[in-house]
Design a protein around this nucleic acid. Structure first.
Lengths: 150, 150
DNA sequence: TCCTAATTAGGAATAATTACTATTTAGTAA
DNA sequence: TTACTAAATAGTAATTATTCCTAATTAGGA
């Protein structure tokens, strides 16, 4: 689900989120939107570096932090020692593939509703739940084929 | 739920898992069993160091890796740049508290059954699911009181 | 008790991320 | 359009968490 979105639209989203729309932020955010495999900061850097050779890792990390802070992107925990990033901030779940290190999105509104209903009754005292997400761990069986939902 | 368990019992568990029961492994595993807040490697080190001043971080990390590999403990992803460890390897969920950085266990067999039933029908193609865990994100409301289930 | 492969201590090396500072830039106001 | 200023960036040093390396030690078996 790559969504082609123009630079001016990206600029508007950044401004709407309350950030200055610098060239670097636009480039980084645009790159992440095109990458649907939850890339690491390093992968993002490799992607944008050819067209933006003067961009620095300091700027990349700081920009990612800013975009996370204003909820334009999300930081995704992983098992390989580095964080990964996600331009999809809607409530969704992740499939962690232990043999390929892939992280895949798993959206399931039926499941969301079941969980929401369940936790409406089952309160946890002194905690304000912000969101509930599933971490589905598994192994990809046929390495030549992709994992597909349903 | 601190379970007081003797060193000889711990030794047996390590041997049963197929590892040599060295002093260091016993100490590290015993310490983690007593710590229920999903400590980082550093916290574990601080805990065991006074009584074991010659233990090295290399050994600690390697031992944690070994214990994870034989499924005696689990590595827990976190948002603060370091991994945390958990002596509870039974299927259970985690509450991530965004304002205090606590990670709490949330066991709920009713929920486990709901999820198991749900994913029995809803297959994901080309994926062998090993486990499904919830990540409950939230904020602790009253910082003077603990979070409590039900 | 001896033997040997596995393990450890201690510290160097690496990887990911953050911090620092002089320079540049986006957005505003004249 | 130009000037201004706070915020952002480039480039790099520093830090943090973790892994790697090697000589010395140890657990468990013969």
């Amino acid at each position: 689900m790559v969504i082609k979105i123009s630079h001016s639209e990206i600029k508007e989203k950044i401004i709407a989120a309350g950030l200055k729309a610098t060239h670097q932020r636009i480039v980084i955010y645009a790159a992440l939107m095109q990458m649907c495999d939850h890339p690491t900061a390093e992968k993002i850097f490799e992607t944008i570096a050819p067209a933006n050779p003067s961009i620095s890792t300091g700027t990349l990390y700081k920009t990612l932090d800013h975009l996370v802070a204003v909820n334009l992107i999300a930081k995704v925990k992983s098992d390989e020692g580095s964080y990964r990033y996600d331009a999809n901030v809607d409530n969704h779940n992740h499939i962690y593939c232990t043999n390929t290190n892939e992280i895949l999105d798993y959206e399931d509104h039926e499941l969301d509703q079941i969980l929401e209903a369940y936790f409406k009754n089952k309160k946890i005292k002194n905690l304000k739940i912000t969101d509930i997400r599933l971490q589905i761990n598994g192994e990809r069986l046929d390495l030549k084929k992709a994992i597909s939902i349903q």
